[in-house]
């Protein structure tokens, strides 16, 4: 694309750890589409869903510091982790709504020479793709249509609730990126049903049961892959497939690509640049000639 649009990129902690492949593919796709990601310098952890359990004001301050830093730059913020996305938005909402939180956070920020104004605009990369590239734009850039691939969209909780939808963006609008890539959109009713979040690591039985519900339903809906927009959902859904299979005696093997990996595949980007080899459940997609149907489902992890 001729003109380059730039965004402030808020990676979030997991992009340096278990979600490295999400970041790799995000960079690859954005670069290919002529969109520039500029990492927010000196960003800190947003507090995740955990910090709030200990101290709410500090949790809001953690988010607010990032927002204040981003406000200095002025570009739109792009947060590919839906927890970061939701927490930054929630902080913004509460700082506007509750003056007592605002006063405390303002004081803490001013102690380190920062000022929070509440002007930052926070987006998930999927929103940006649909807005700035658009379905038509995306379609036009597809080099390798994912013909015959049945894709179940899975968004998890934090992009669906409670903030994203209030912008008038619906999950059904999000879904449309899948047919734009030439793939078949699977009607997946549980697209915003909880995957258990960190419970898979703390109360495993319960966490796995939630993952099982999703995997089983995706299989029943005849999905070949389940695409996610949240790095933690992505890990949860793919990391426990073996244990779930043993526990429930049911084949739940299904590749869980991050959405930019799927988009990158259709854009014809290399497997390496999309870090496809980093997936625990490999996605084996062979481009098929026009007219030939049927994807090749992946085998065991």
């Amino acid at each position: 694309m001729a003109s380059t649009r730039a965004y402030t990129y808020f990676p979030g902690c997991c992009m340096h750890g278990f979600a490295r492949h999400c970041q790799d593919s995000l960079y690859a796709v954005f670069e290919d589409l002529g969109l520039e990601l500029r990492v927010l310098p000196e960003w800190n952890c947003c507090g995740a869903t955990t910090y709030m359990s200990v101290d709410e004001h500090q949790a809001f301050a953690l988010a607010a510091r990032n927002l204040a830093l981003a406000e200095q730059i002025g570009l739109e913020i792009l947060a590919p982790c839906t927890a970061c996305f939701m927490i930054l938005k929630k902080a913004q909402d509460y700082l506007a709504r509750y003056p007592e939180i605002r006063a405390k956070v303002d004081r803490a920020l001013s102690a380190i020479g920062l000022r929070y104004q509440g002007t930052a605009r926070i987006y998930h990369p999927l929103e940006i793709l649909l807005r700035d590239v658009g379905l038509k734009g995306l379609k036009a850039r597809v080099k390798q249509p994912l013909r015959g691939l049945n894709v179940a969209p899975y968004y998890g909780c934090l992009i669906a609730r409670p903030y994203a939808l209030s912008n008038g963006v619906t999950l059904e609008a999000f879904d449309q990126f899948i047919p734009a890539l030439g793939a078949n959109l699977v009607d997946f009713e549980l697209k915003a049903h909880c995957c258990g979040g960190s419970l898979t690591g703390t109360i495993e039985d319960v966490g796995r049961r939630l993952v099982y519900i999703l995997l089983r339903q995706a299989k029943r809906a005849k999905a070949d892959v389940m695409v996610t927009v949240c790095p933690l959902c992505q890990l949860n859904l793919e990391a426990h497939q073996g244990k779930i299979q043993r526990q429930y005696g049911e084949d739940v093997t299904i590749p869980i690509p991050y959405f930019t990996q799927l988009i990158g595949m259709a854009l014809g980007l290399s497997d390496k640049s999309l870090a496809l080899e980093k997936l625990l459940v490999p996605i084996r997609w062979q481009p098929v000639e026009k007219g030939a149907a049927a994807a090749q489902p992946a085998t065991a992890a």
Partner: peptide, 12 residues
């Protein structure tokens, strides 16, 4: 209270 995974379904 420890089981709450903060999915926000109830809140919405």
């Amino acid at each position: 209270i420890w089981l709450c995974a903060s999915c926000y379904e109830c809140t919405v």
